Amino acid sequence: MTDNQEKILNAFKQLLIENGYTKTTTRKIASLAGVNELTIFKNFKDKEGLLNAAVNDYLHDVDEITSSITLSGNVETDLIMLSRRYQNFINDHQAIVLAGFREAFEIPSLNIAVQKIPLYFKHFLMAYFKKMQTAGVIKQHLDVEAQAMSFIWLNFGYFLTRQRFSNPEISFDLTYFLQNNIKSFVNGLTK
Rank of each mutant, 00 (worst) to 15 (best):
L82F: 06
N167W: 11
G157Y: 10
N155L: 01
N52Q: 13
P108M: 13
I152L: 13
A104F: 02
K122R: 15
R102M: 12
N181L: 02
D57K: 08
P168W: 01
M132V: 00
R102F: 02
Y158F: 15
F159I: 11
S72D: 12
I138R: 01
I80K: 12
I170A: 05
A127L: 11
Q163C: 12
A54M: 00
F159S: 05
N155T: 08
A53K: 10
F105G: 10
L79K: 00
A95Y: 03
H141R: 12
R85H: 14
E145Q: 15
Q163K: 11
A146W: 10
L59D: 06
V144P: 13
P118K: 07
G188W: 06
I112K: 15
I69T: 11
V114Y: 00
M81W: 00
E76Q: 13
Y86Q: 13
A146E: 15
I170H: 08
T70K: 13
R84T: 10
I117T: 04
E64I: 14
D57R: 06
F159C: 07
I107E: 07
D92L: 02
S171W: 03
V97M: 04
R85F: 14
R84L: 03
D143W: 11
F177G: 01
P118A: 03
N111I: 01
F129I: 14
S166F: 13
E106V: 06
D143T: 07
L82R: 05
P108V: 07
Q94G: 10
I170N: 06
Q163M: 14
L119Q: 14
A53W: 02
F121S: 03
K130F: 09
S68H: 08
Q163Y: 05
H141Y: 04
G136C: 11
N180P: 02
M149W: 13
F129C: 03
H123L: 08
Q179M: 12
I112W: 03
Q147E: 11
S67N: 15
I107Q: 10
G157Q: 06
I80D: 00
A95P: 03
